[in-house]
Computed example of a mutant assay.
Amino acid sequence: MLGIGIIAWIIIGGLAGWIASKIMKTDAQQGIILNIVVGVIGGLLGGFLLKIFGVDVEGAGWIFSFVTCLIGACILLFLVKLVTGRGRTRV
């Protein structure tokens, strides 16, 4: 069962990372591997933030997990753009 969980994390993380990169307009800079990494790290970040606010993320289901990954991935991409300064247009 552990293998199915890891595969599910990769699939949900990849999909969430890809959609987040479309929302944050960073898709041209990322490939499939980076989308998966962003989605999985976004899931960890989103889960951590939801736990801080007292939301039970343990047994919430697939849709909630996807939304958590998506929101966390968007936050992660926003922070990366903020730190690297790639979100600004230069004159």
Rank of each mutant, 00 (worst) to 15 (best):
R88K: 15
L2H: 07
G43D: 11
I6H: 11
T26Q: 12
A16M: 06
I4Q: 13
V38E: 00
I63W: 12
T68M: 09
G17V: 06
W18I: 03
G39K: 05
K25T: 02
V57A: 02
I4F: 06
G42D: 07
V57L: 03
G42R: 09
L34N: 02
D27K: 10
G42M: 09
T89P: 09
I41R: 04
G87P: 11
S65G: 15
M24K: 11
I7M: 15
I6F: 15
L76P: 00
N35Q: 01
V55M: 08
L82I: 03
L70G: 02
W9L: 13
G31C: 01
E58C: 00
T89K: 14
G42Q: 10
L76E: 01
T84P: 03
V67I: 14
T84I: 04
S21M: 06
G47M: 13
A16K: 10
N35T: 03
I10P: 05
G3C: 08
I11G: 04
D56T: 04
M1H: 09
T26N: 04
A28K: 07
G85N: 05
G39I: 05
I7A: 15
W62R: 03
G72V: 04
G17T: 05
K81I: 00
I52G: 03
L77Y: 06
A28R: 03
G31S: 03
G87N: 11
L82F: 12
G54A: 04
G87L: 09
V67L: 14
L44C: 09
R90S: 13
V67N: 02
L79V: 09
V91A: 15
G46T: 10
I23D: 04
I75R: 08
C69K: 04
